[in-house]
Design a protein around this nucleic acid. Structure first.
Lengths: 178, 178
DNA sequence: TGCTCCATGTAACACGTTACATGATTGC
DNA sequence: GCAATCATGTAACGTGTTACATGGAGCA
């Protein structure tokens, strides 16, 4: 939808190379927005052409091609312009729901195993999020606006995982009924 | 990801024209998987070429081009093959989270209004889902396996909306702090 | 020497969105 | 006759995925 704006925001937080950006992205915004390195390099190229960002050879480049990207005033203006517009709520495109409908239509497909695998994945993510929460947002510490917002974003993820696990357990009972 | 399998499943539930499929899709699987009619016609063409489905002129076509698609044994086999594989859990790609990070980075952007708009959207959807629940899955009625599954899918949507609304209210407080 | 990680890229293709176009049917 | 809806399609473009390729740096 607007990967470019997500990348711009990440670059605004910290100028970095495409590679670093890819890794940071995976560990922050990437929790709810995955992007491959190919997408990222393509977008960086476009944004540089558009004059939103500029690149320079990294101080620690040596003989490598490493370059650092930073946001130009034009890029920042574009971000603010974008942020003022409406945002469409995400849709929950979940393959597993289709499989469930198929199961309902043609009879038991033995989806319980797959559902249990998914529960394990959700629990892994939840554990990770809670670990981050304890590390970065210790209970009782007074928090600045920015920290509060980051905490709320993380909480969104935590709620989603908890929600998914609870639902999956109930679903499992239905699948195991007979 | 596998729109084709979602469409196949929908066609298996009921053979229909591309247009009807698009409308039914929007009102069932489409609650958590939107597709435009262009995507649907394209996929139908591909699946017919692949021998998964067959089309015939609709009985009520008159002078129109209306055609009915139905799933062939090959298509059904493909569905079962697909259903046996692993399904990747969906990612929560939400633009608004990026806006929040931007707000945290550069200062208040006045996102409260937009958040309130989103709360209203979530509440609309929730009301719709609950209405469907009352209509199709009346409390206390004994339910067959298929109905139980459909009910659980709907519940997934209901939980998600409730979840989103609760989170959004908490988020709103943070945004309105100062 | 060979392995892994850092760092960037090309190419091809699949999937999703938007705009535009066409013609029949239905209801006012 | 006109508008809305039914029904299907083309074209162009933007986004996302997968496979493959290149070369430097650090380490055993």
């Amino acid at each position: 939808m607007s990967l470019s704006h997500a990348l711009l925001t990440s670059l605004l937080e910290k100028s970095s190379s495409g590679y670093d950006l890819a890794r940071r992205f995976d560990k922050s915004i990437g929790f709810f927005w995955h992007a491959t390195h190919q997408q990222i390099y393509r977008e960086l190229g476009r944004m540089e052409t558009a004059g939103w960002i500029a690149s320079s050879i990294a101080p620690d480049a040596g003989k490598t091609r490493k370059r650092i990207y930073c946001v130009l005033p034009q890029g920042q203006a574009e971000l603010l312009r974008w942020a003022a517009g409406p945002s469409s709520p995400m849709d929950l495109r979940d393959e597993f729901m289709v499989r469930l409908r198929l199961d309902a239509a043609v009879g038991p497909l033995g989806l319980a195993r797959e559902l249990q695998r998914r529960i394990a994945l959700h629990e892994e993510k939840l554990a990770l999020y809670r670990q981050i929460e304890q590390r970065d947002f210790a209970a009782g510490s007074s928090q600045a606006r920015a920290a509060l917002i980051h905490h709320m974003i993380l909480k969104k993820g935590i709620l989603y995982e908890e929600n998914s696990i609870a639902w999956a357990h109930e679903m499992l009972e239905v699948l195991l009924l007979k």
